[in-house]
Structure formats: structure tokens, C-alpha cells
Design a protein around this nucleic acid. Structure first.
Lengths: 143, 143
DNA sequence: CACCGTTGTAAAGTCGCTTTATCAATAATC
DNA sequence: GATTATTGATAAAGCGACTTTACAACGGTG
């Protein structure tokens, strides 16, 4: 189970690199994932991924430095900020979506339409079920 | 796809902790995985996991310090060493196997026998196929 | 206004690695 | 048999991706 998902991540990163976004590293997927950070607050993004605000802000700082997004003040709340994707950031988002689409097509071709649908449904069900339960909270442990 | 496997890892670690092996951390799974390090050489283990010999040796040093294994000289090759699991190490191996068995049982109960078998087969096929291809070589990148 | 919770962030530390560099033992070549 | 290349382990230093701790700015509530 571990190998296929690792392969998917490698493939996505490879697609991004060949598309010219060579400055992205795997850690950035914590930000650049569905539904994307555009218009959202750093704290909320951190909560989504299950890591600290500081760690998320560290990644956001990197992506801002690379020109993928900017953090601007929230007009409605003086404390908070809002992430706003640049054109480059939107291009990355589109590239990721295209990559995922082609990967799914490849998987469907490998497994056949029926088995692919079964796999998708099974994983979706596991996502929602409580059997594997457990919080996304990383808990107190360094590393 | 990512969420279920993360949940499995958390569950395995939780089972180990409740079984009394509270000093194990996720990184140790790189060593304590099928088929286990017993009788094997550090270099080979590193190659299996796809990381450097130094990193593997770092983990082996931790596990040796915790009393899970020892590194003794290879009688057939003066350069190399062989990993030998202690009783505690063997107990961990058994605990992991039991944990995996119960997790699979739970998944089978959640999905039903047929869907569980389908999931297993699909993932096995993806493991073997070249569509997702790509080497396990981490390549030259720090992180 | 005083109080408390929240947001962002700065600083320092930790962990799990990688790269680089030795050193010893073996294997290959002359 | 001496020299060179390869393989194995491992120490040292460094980096990336976090964490914990600490704090200042802001906002809602009494």
C-alpha cells in the first residue's frame, strides 16, 4: 500500500519539475493540495494538514519567496492574513490537476475501468470510516 | 489514498506503544518491516529501504541502544556486520505481525470480504506494474 | 477598560536524514 | 606478492522540516 502512493507522489513531483517548477520539493505538497491555499488563512491550512502554524508559515514563506503566493493582510481581521496565489501559483495548481488526471488515467488503464472504480470506492470508504480512526493530531513529538 | 495508509501507520505505532514498546518512533519502521533485519547486513537494509547506509546505521544504533538488536561481526566477511535481533526485538516483530493481522481483519470487516480482496489485489498489481514506475533511489537531494 | 482567546511570527532546539570523509577488509589486476 | 579498486561501516558536519517556547498585535466579551 505504501509503494503505490509513494510512486504517485514521485510522479506528481516529476511532472511539476518537467513543467518547469523545479524549485518545488515534496514538503510543499502540504500547501499545494486540494483545495489549495488561495484565499485561506495560514492557521486554517495548518489545521487541515495537521501541523503547527509555525511549520505552515515556514512553508508559506518559502513559497512566497519563490513567487508562488503572497500573504496579505485580512481586510476583515487585523490579526490574520490571507494567502493569495500569484499567476505562477495558479499555473502550479493547474499543472498538479493535469498531473493527477493523467495519473488516474494511467491507473485506470493499468487496472481496467471496473477495478479502478472499485479501488477508488474502497479507498474513499476507508477515508470516511472510523475503523482506522484516530485523530490527525500529530501530538507532542518532535520530528 | 494518503489518509488510509497514514491511519494504518498510526494504528501500528499505537499498538506497539500499548504493547509496551513506547520508545519506538515512526522512523524505526524503516528497519522493523518485512522481512525484518534479522541476520542481514546494514548496507542491504539501507538499499531495501532506499536510503543511505549512514541513515540506516543511525537507526540501527538507536535500536541497538534500546535493546532491540545487536550488530555483530560477520564471520564470513571481516568488513561487514550482521544484525541480530534480541528477544525484545523478536517480541516487537511478533507484535507488529499481530497488529497487521488485526488491522487487516478490521479492514475486511469494514469493506466486506470481497471488496477487501479486490483492494488487496489492486494494490498488489500497482506494486508490480511499471505505470507508476520510477526508481526507489532517493537521488541527490537533502531533506 | 481589563481580560482572555486567537493569529502571526521570531528564536532555538530536535530529529531524521544527506553529503563528505576516513578507515579497514576484501577483491581485482598486474 | 604488491598495488589498486571496490565494498562495508561509521564518524563529522550540515540541512530541511518540523517542534516547543515565547511574544506582540488584534478582537470579542464582561
Amino acid at each position: 500500500m505504501r509503494m503505490p502512493i509513494d510512486a504517485v507522489y514521485r510522479r506528481m513531483l516529476a511532472d511539476l519539475h518537467t513543467a518547469g517548477f523545479t524549485d518545488l520539493v515534496p514538503a510543499h505538497f502540504a500547501v499545494l493540495r486540494y483545495p489549495g491555499p488561495d484565499g485561506r488563512r495560514p492557521s486554517d491550512l495548518a489545521a487541515d494538514v495537521g501541523m503547527s502554524k509555525q511549520a505552515m508559515n515556514y512553508l508559506l514563506g518559502q513559497l512566497e519567496g519563490l513567487g508562488y503566493l503572497v500573504r496579505r493582510d485580512d481586510p476583515d481581521d487585523g490579526r490574520s492574513k490571507r494567502v493569495s496565489m500569484t499567476d505562477r501559483g495558479l499555473a502550479v495548481r493547474d499543472t498538479i490537476r493535469a498531473s493527477v488526471a493523467t495519473i488516474e488515467t494511467d491507473l485506470e488503464q493499468e487496472l481496467g475501468p471496473q477495478r479502478f472504480a472499485q479501488l477508488r470506492d474502497a479507498l474513499t470508504q476507508l477515508n470516511a470510516c472510523t475503523t482506522l480512526g484516530g485523530s490527525t493530531d500529530p501530538g507532542p513529538h518532535a520530528g
